[in-house]
């Protein structure tokens, strides 16, 4: 059995097909990267796993339960939590309220008080800023809140959509270190990134997504050394 299994899904926006017969698998405890250029369909894939969109064809299993028709709130209850692209914080709410809302699902709600302590330990900056409105934070801090908010939901599988987007190189390092720590604490991580080097370095395996199809897959180390990836994504 596998933890997350995506089987031959097709996904459309209206009449436009964006994902074609895509399959992937993630085992419990793994860190997996999905890399691909703009418009490859990475966010669409995560939205589909999260239940914001539904595949026209194919199945998605999580811990052996079919979830491809479930609404987003049910999927969060199952333990799949997404930190969306562009952070999507609740801008006019305080940092603390953003975090507490993260623990809304019934599995996480009762632990909110202890989880928030864990989040503050991992991301001490958030405690300093807890009463500030989310919109007043810097980009890096906002990404930290987005990740912290995701952790508040007590994810079994945490999916991060381009957490490094729009951040300075030094902050990008911080973000990836945080992701590594989260993985080390036992959370399975699915990381979507355009920052190929950083994301593959901290991953066990990777998938390359091109035009809505899996173009390559394999252990992260092999992908890092692959000539196609070197030319297409690293510009070497």
């Amino acid at each position: 059995m596998s933890f997350l299994e995506v089987k031959n899904i097709d996904v459309y926006y209206g009449d436009v097909q964006v994902i074609f017969d895509l399959s992937l698998e993630i085992a419990e405890g793994e860190v997996v990267s999905i890399i691909g250029g703009n418009g490859a369909g990475k966010s669409t894939l995560l939205k589909t796993i999260s239940g914001l969109m539904h595949p026209a064809k194919g199945e998605i299993f999580f811990e052996d339960t079919a979830i491809q028709t479930a609404p987003p709130e049910k999927i969060v209850e199952c333990g799949i939590v997404q930190v969306p692209e562009g952070r999507r914080l609740f801008t006019l709410m305080s940092v603390k309220d953003n975090l507490i809302v993260g623990a809304y699902n019934s599995r996480a709600d009762q632990y909110a008080n202890t989880t928030i302590e864990d989040v503050y330990t991992l991301l001490p900056r958030l405690q300093e800023r807890e009463s500030q409105l989310a919109m007043t934070l810097s980009g890096g801090e906002q990404q930290m809140v987005a990740i912290g908010r995701g952790l508040m939901a007590k994810p079994k599988l945490l999916m991060l959509d381009e957490p490094s987007l729009g951040l300075a190189p030094i902050l990008i390092k911080d973000i990836f270190q945080t992701v590594r720590k989260i993985a080390d604490q036992g959370t399975t991580v699915l990381l979507v990134e355009q920052d190929v080097i950083h994301s593959l370095r901290l991953s066990d395996r990777g998938y390359v997504l091109e035009h809505g199809r899996i173009a390559m897959e394999g252990p992260a180390k092999d992908l890092l050394n692959d000539p196609h990836i070197k030319t297409a994504y690293l510009g070497l």
């Binding site: 969060v76 209850e77 609740f90 709410m93 507490i100 809304y104 699902n105 908010r149």
Partner: peptide
């Protein structure tokens, strides 16, 4: 309250609120 925060979150960003498990 828990529901109050969920209402505020939904008013600010419906889709993000769904991703928090809010129906």
């Amino acid at each position: 309250t828990r529901m109050g925060r969920a209402i505020r979150a939904t008013s600010l960003d419906r889709e993000a609120a769904s991703l928090m498990g809010i129906n």
